[in-house]
Write a protein that binds this DNA or RNA. Structure first.
Length: 426
DNA sequence: TCTGGGGTCCTAGGACCC
DNA sequence: TCTGGGGTCCTAGGACCC
């Protein structure tokens, strides 16, 4: 059996943990740039029927009318809270797959004589005691069924956030009750295609659609879902996080930009961020992609977007080399006269640092540069992000940085911020 | 005026090799 | 007139996830 443990409205719950005054009240968390709603707790969902990903400007009044508290996203806080949850989970099984920031699969094999329902409640209660975060637990023979069980644990009140599907009958009933769109791995497109064929429930999908059709129309990915719904495990637990194959970042500017200089500074900053991640996994990148775009939602602005990929003569994770290359690339695609909304960088062709093929024409000493980067990383870790950075990043961040007007303090990592808000602690 | 960001996996088709 | 067979690698595009 496999358990899926998933935090309820994770980002909103993280905000509430440190704000007892908001317990039981509606809370939503906004995306980067405060653009749209990305998390809402159950009180907020119930009160306002806020659809997720709704642009904030469309529902601002609704939020105010219902006295909904809203927060800019605070990923430093959510990342730290996530670690606390995952550490607690590791007490329950050595086999934990951290699937995302707020959910994990855990292996419950060899627990034949344990009451799984009681065990699920024990997990749920321990996490709440240790972190203050509410979770749902779904237990079933396959990952796809565990996902379904988890969903039911939250939706159907009498489960009290723990749902176990441990008999063929229980699985069958769950499939009959589940809409096809609620199955993990079935997105909008496949859902529409299945609906068109008269398939509306998970049970119909698993028992009325032929494997041939699934294979032909939904590839092997669909086949795995189909089999897993029938109780045949196809997806194993991935305990070791895989090295990333690409690392990128792209964020909207706080305000639209026309000036190449400012865009270059934002681009240089993003490069410093992604190359730090690259060094953390001891990889080097062979390719850099840079892209630039205007606001495609606007029908007033002239539209332009472009991207370019450059191949490096030697794979590297050196911030300074990557920044120079990215800047050069950016200059080739930039065209004046447009109001740009976003610049992005993507490092790919990632290879382990020790496999890098040196280039006979390279002028930098790789050992010296690697030592330099290690020092930069250490300084930034000790004294805060971007304490030391390339001069190309400049010092005009407020001109392009994204907007996070309503970010909560970094309660768990920044003591100074915590002290500053002691008024919340009555 | 204001609309997120970071990923993965799979397939088909083209280019190329011997 | 008749024009093979077995591969690999790369890319773009589609679909999905949180």
């Amino acid at each position: 059996m496999i358990a899926l443990v998933d935090c309820n409205s994770f980002y909103a719950s993280c905000e509430q943990v440190f704000r007892p005054d908001l317990w039981g009240k509606p809370v939503v968390v906004l995306s980067n740039n405060d653009g749209c709603v990305i998390a809402a707790n159950k009180e907020a969902k119930a009160l306002t029927q806020i659809p997720m990903f709704e642009p904030v400007f469309k529902i601002k009044q609704l939020l105010i009318d219902h006295d909904v508290s809203f927060f800019s996203s605070n990923y430093t806080l959510y990342g730290e809270m996530s670690q606390r949850v995952m550490n607690t989970l590791k007490q329950f099984s050595p086999q934990v797959e951290i699937y995302s920031i707020d959910e994990s699969f855990i292996d419950l094999a060899n627990m034949r004589f344990v009451n799984l329902d009681a065990h699920g409640h024990h997990i749920k209660n321990t996490i709440f005691r240790n972190t203050g975060l509410p979770v749902g637990v779904g237990i079933a023979p396959t990952k796809v069924l565990a996902k379904l069980a988890n969903r039911m644990s939250k939706k159907i009140a009498h489960y009290k956030h723990v749902c176990v599907l441990d008999t063929p009958e229980a699985c069958k009933q769950a499939l009959k009750d589940a809409e096809i769109k609620d199955v993990w791995g079935i997105g909008k497109k496949h859902c529409q295609r299945l609906n068109n064929r008269g398939i509306f429930t998970a049970n119909q999908f698993a028992y009325e659609v032929s494997l041939e059709w699934v294979r032909k129309n939904m590839t092997v990915v669909g086949e795995r879902i189909w089999r897993e719904l029938r109780g045949e495990p196809c997806l194993s637990l991935e305990m070791l996080p895989k090295a990333k194959k690409a690392i990128g970042t792209a964020k909207s500017f706080g305000n639209k930009l026309t000036d190449l200089g400012l865009i270059e500074e934002a681009c240089a900053y993003y490069i410093s961020e992604v190359s730090e991640v690259l060094r953390k996994q001891n990889s080097c990148a062979q390719f850099i992609q840079v892209f630039l775009q205007t606001n495609y939602h606007s029908d007033r602005d002239a539209q332009y977007s472009n991207s370019i990929t450059v191949t490096l003569s030697t794979a590297t994770n050196d911030t300074f080399i990557l920044t120079l290359e990215a800047t050069k690339a950016l200059r080739t695609i930039y065209k004046s006269g447009y109001r740009y909304k976003k610049v992005g960088v993507n490092l790919s062709g990632l290879i382990p640092q020790e496999f890098v093929q040196m280039n006979i024409f390279d002028s930098v000493n790789p050992q010296e540069r690697s030592a330099l980067m290690q020092t930069v990383d250490k300084l930034n870790q000790k004294y805060g992000k971007s304490t030391v950075n390339s001069g190309l990043v400049g010092n005009r961040q407020e001109k392009w940085e994204l907007i996070k007007k309503d970010r909560s303090p970094r309660y768990t990592t920044q003591w100074s911020e915590l002290l500053a808000i002691d008024s919340n602690w009555s």
